[in-house]
Amino acid sequence: MRSGVAAERGSGDRLGIDPRGWHDRRVPGPNDDAQRLRDLALLRRVRDRIDREYAQPLDVEALARGVNLSAGHLSREFKRAYGESVYSYLMTRRIERAMALLRRGDLTVTEVCFEVGCSSLGTFSTRFTELVGVPPSVYRNEPDGVFEAVPSVLAKRVARPVRNREATPARRR
């Protein structure tokens, strides 16, 4: 199912009815490009909303409703555009925030889990361990030791919440 905008446009649009049947794709034209850019802008709003509201009990249905897309269409297009699913992106944001909170050291793992919008400690710990390389309890006690333990691909992600780390002047290797 396409977005509401597409459906509306299609109803009065001769391109909306394709006499050649479902298996004959029509040649993409400028209208398709414009539609694609509008869809991408909606995906951007969803992604920004996750960045803003990840600590709320968000789910894919609610996110899709917010931009008048079907959940299926949103899931497919989001993954195509950003390379990961809506749910995965949401969880990654939660884990990133959790890392920052755990580094502060004044909250327990359970408190951090709820603080970042996860309702299940089990799911939180599993996903945290997958992304960071160590369980949240270990990370909380020794956040800096983790950098040597994670693969380099993840190290960037691990370090990401600390933006000013990138700007350390005169850093030599």
């Binding site: 960045d51 920052a100 580094r103 600390v162 933006r163 000013n164 780390r165």
Partner: peptide
């Protein structure tokens, strides 16, 4: 304007907010 982030205290020492300009 399209809000990307409400004002928050970042762990790296600034308070910031974010918007999308009309071009994204």
């Amino acid at each position: 304007a399209e809000v990307a982030q409400e004002p928050i205290d970042q762990p790296y020492g600034v308070r910031d907010c974010a918007f999308r300009d009309p071009s994204g």
